[in-house]
Structure formats: C-alpha cells, structure tokens
C-alpha cells in the first residue's frame, strides 16, 4: 500500500511538472475551458425556450463537465501507452515490480486530481464572471460522481489494453469523444437500456441531483445498486481485459512495437 502511494505520488509530481513545463499549452487549455464554460453560461440564454433557461444552463453545463472529465480520463489512459511507446519509455515502465496496471492507476489518479481541481476552479471563475450560479448538493453529487468514476477507470483500462496491442488507435480515441457525448447527454428516461452501459447510470443520477434537486432519499435502493454494480463490473472487467491484452502483447512481442 505504501509502495502504491509512492507510485501515485511520483506520477502526480510528473504530471504537475509537465503541466508547468509546457506552460503555454497549459495556459491555452485553461483559457479554452474558461471561455467554453463562460459561453455556455451566457450563451444558453439565447438558445431554446426562455421559460426554461435555468434548466437548459444546468443541463448543458452538467453534461459538458462530466463529458470532459470522462474524456480526459479515458483518453489519458489510451494515449499514455501510445506516447510512452513513441518515446521509448514503455518497456521501462513495465519493468516495475508493482505492475504496469498500477502505474496506469497512478496516472489516472494524477489526472483526476489535477483536472478535478482545474475544472472546479474554472467553473467557479466562469460562474463568478457570468453571474450565473449552479446550485446543487455537493454531498450527494460528489459520492455519486466518485462511484461513477470507478467505472470510467475500468473503461480506461480496456482502452489501454487495446492501445498496447494496436498502437495506432488514435482514431478510435478521437471517435470516443462522440460516443462519450452520446452516453453523457442521453437521459436514461429516453434510453433505459443504457443503464447497462458504463457510467450512464451515474451521469443520470448526477443530472437528477443538479437539475431536479434530488436528495439521497429520492433515489431507490435499485438506483444505488445499479450505480455501484455497474461501476464495479466495469472496473473489474476493464482490469481483466487490460491484463489479458498485456499478456497477449508479451506473447506476440508487441510491447515495444509502434
């Protein structure tokens, strides 16, 4: 456990150093998201039914933030393998006695923390600038969000597994943003079968809390069970697929190939 902590720590430091070192990139990214949030907060007023402005703003912002988060985690896991293979450091990472899947876990946690802080600060800043405030219960949203993230991590592991075998999966990772958009924006009331898809249940619950002011008591035991089981299933399945892919790549000698 202590070793895992040191590994997460090292990866967090590395991600932070790289953000600092690529400062112009980081600033561009920060500005980009600030203006996107701001545009959404202000722009929604002129789109759609004026009677439902509040709901529209909440709906778009919630979906966008969640979509951005999921995308960051999933793409970072897929791209980690590609970038490391390109640089020549992938096999070096595999030489850790803690196992590559833990290194990837370290990278996810680092990304989650860094981007989590960044998005929260930017969201608050853009709300402050626009004078539009999203009102929601953080005590309900946060646990649901964290449980949903567990499932996202699982899907990220699946993508990493694919990236180890098929190094040229950039296009898949690019298409992924549209698939994710579909999953993040479509409510379960419209497509109930999506409850089995990864993280859709969690996003739906977050939406209900943020837009319709749901509390803990408004959700049923079935809702909680579906959320937890979905996340655990995708995490376990994701790691399983990743480990199988890793083994396959080692059998075929694909690790260092790019």
């Amino acid at each position: 456990m202590k070793q895992l902590w040191h590994l997460i720590n090292a990866n967090l430091r590395k991600e932070y150093i790289e953000l600092k070192r690529y400062f112009p990139n980081t600033i561009t990214m920060i500005l980009q998201f600030y203006f996107i949030f701001l545009a959404m907060l202000l722009g929604i007023h002129v789109i759609g039914d004026p009677q439902q402005v509040e709901t529209n703003v909440q709906y778009v912002i919630v979906n966008y933030v969640i979509w951005f988060f999921m995308l960051t985690i999933l793409q970072s896991l897929g791209f980690v393998i590609l970038f490391e293979a390109q640089r020549g450091t992938l096999e070096q990472l595999f030489m850790t006695p803690l196992g590559m899947w833990r290194v990837l876990f370290g990278r996810i946690i680092s990304n989650l923390l860094i981007f989590g802080i960044l998005v929260t600060v930017l969201l608050v800043l853009s709300m402050l600038t626009a004078g539009e405030w999203l009102v929601f219960r953080i005590d309900v949203v946060l646990p649901v969000f964290l449980i949903t993230t567990i499932g996202v991590i699982g899907v990220g592991y699946m993508l990493s597994g694919l990236a180890i075998i098929f190094k040229q999966i950039q296009s898949v990772l690019n298409v992924l943003q549209f698939i994710l958009m579909g999953l993040a924006f479509v409510p379960l009331s419209v497509a109930p079968y999506l409850v089995f898809a990864p993280f859709v249940k969690g996003i739906d619950m977050i939406r209900l809390v943020m837009i319709h002011s749901y509390t803990w008591n408004d959700f049923t035991a079935l809702d909680y069970s579906a959320l937890i089981l979905n996340s655990i299933f995708y995490l376990v399945f994701g790691i399983f697929i990743y480990l199988k892919s890793e083994r396959f790549a080692m059998e075929r000698g694909l690790l260092s190939q790019y």
Binding site: Q3, N11, R13, Q92, P97, G106
Partner: peptide, 24 residues
C-alpha cells in the same frame, strides 16, 4: 530513449524510483 527528455536529471531519477514504489 529510456528516460524522459522533458524532465531534469534528478526528476527522472525520482520518477523512476517512485514507479518502483520508493519514496522521494
């Protein structure tokens, strides 16, 4: 190519040690 070119000498050493579970 086994090291990160955008990190410093010491940062590389700290990172790879951390990846093996050794504290900074």
């Amino acid at each position: 190519r086994n090291i990160y070119w955008r990190l410093t000498v010491r940062e590389n050493m700290e990172y790879f040690a951390g990846n093996r579970g050794i504290s900074k």
